[in-house]
């Protein structure tokens, strides 16, 4: 178990590409932190720097109060699960799991005991003598997990471990990984580009974009109080509606609607509202021209335009809907306001 401190961690590749702008954060003991962002945002680079697979250009990385910038990956007391599992194809499952222990000169019977223990935890018992090529994707992923847990590391690193699995299996493994982490209580950093994974698994989410941390917070915070328009549009499916509006006379005006009491200086503004915070309301001041109804079984998504802007709205399955104009209102507390130039949240 370990705490991880990042102080102004910075990565510039030899070709001058700045993969990670100086970033700082702190991970508590036993915490499950998810790094999420679009591809190329630097999240994998950050993880690989923590693992010791990428050199740190500047800044300090501390695991349990020990600066490990120049410590070899093998000596950082970490275990990593890779996207394509990275199992050794010529070794049996047993050998794959045991390899790290063998290299650390653990006694033979101790290795055998630990491997069996890990195999049982992951339901791999009957596959121990098979080669990775004889296993399904989910089983391979479990072997990769086994390889990680058998070492009792103080830090787990996951690099998009579920992205090669099909949707159903992904869902199942998501829960398994989370449960396993809870049970073992090991501090974990998990990288993904899938915001659903981030929302469901994380104790805290770190949203990254273009080598920069956009927001750090619990899933609720990130979802309900996004720190920037980027976070607002990246998290949530469908994303938050972002609409250009205006503040005049200390009220928000948009397409004929007024929202009182936001007490801001007059001027242009971007206001964001989640699809589920738009409600059908016969007396509503807003008019949504519904063009497409997306049927999802448990609920429906209405896509249309409002004041010339594309808007998505979320309604329960019991609400009768049809295309055409619909009167709606917005939950005032649920509105987020952003600066139109910087995209940052105004609170």
């Amino acid at each position: 178990m370990a705490q991880v401190h990042l102080n102004d961690l910075h990565k510039v590749y030899p070709n001058g590409y700045e993969a990670l702008k100086p970033s700082s954060f702190h991970i508590e003991d036993g915490e499950f932190v998810v790094l999420v962002g679009p591809s190329g945002c630097g999240k994998s680079t950050l993880l690989r720097m923590v693992a010791g697979l990428e050199e740190i250009t500047a800044g300090a990385l501390k695991i349990d109060d020990k600066v490990v910038n120049h410590v070899d990956p093998a000596d950082r007391d970490i275990a990593m699960v890779f996207q394509n599992y990275a199992l050794y194809p010529h070794m049996t499952v047993r050998k794959n799991i045991a390899y790290g222990l063998q290299n650390r000169k653990v006694a033979k019977d101790e290795i055998a005991r630990k491997v069996d223990e890990a195999a049982e935890m992951l339901n791999l018992g009957e596959y121990l003598d098979r080669k990775p090529s004889q296993l399904s994707g989910g089983q391979r992923q479990r072997v990769a997990m086994g390889r990680a847990i058998v070492r009792d590391p103080s830090l787990f690193l996951f690099d998009e471990p579920l992205s090669n699995l099909d949707a159903k299996l992904r869902h199942q493994m998501r829960i398994e990984i989370k449960a396993l982490q809870r049970r073992l209580g090991v501090t974990s950093i998990y990288v993904t580009h899938d915001q659903v994974e981030a929302m469901t698994m994380a104790d805290r989410i770190i949203v990254m974009n273009a080598g920069r941390i956009e927001q750090i917070g619990t899933p609720e915070e990130v979802y309900h109080r996004p720190a920037s328009t980027f976070v607002a549009s990246f998290m949530g499916a469908p994303p938050m509606n972002l609409l250009p509006g205006e503040i005049a006379d200390s009220a928000l005006r948009f397409a004929g609607m007024e929202l009182e009491g936001c007490g801001r200086e007059a001027g242009p503004i971007v206001f964001g509202v989640r699809p589920e915070d738009i409600l059908p309301d016969e007396d509503g001041a807003l008019m949504l021209d519904v063009e497409i109804v997306e049927e999802l079984g448990a609920h429906r998504l209405l896509h249309g335009t409002m004041g010339g802007e594309q808007v998505t709205m979320h309604v329960g399955k019991e609400t009768a809907v049809s295309t055409g104009p619909l009167s709606v209102s917005v939950v005032p507390e649920a509105v987020s306001l952003f600066d139109p130039d910087s995209g940052l949240r105004l609170s």
């Binding site: 990956p73 093998a74 394509n84 990275a86 199992l87 050794y88 390899y99 790290g100 290299n103 390889r147």
Partner: peptide
């Protein structure tokens, strides 16, 4: 040979 294999081995202490 996939690069991740090298990295996995490095972390495994090889």
């Amino acid at each position: 040979v996939p690069e991740e294999l090298v990295e996995a081995a490095r972390i495994d202490g090889a």
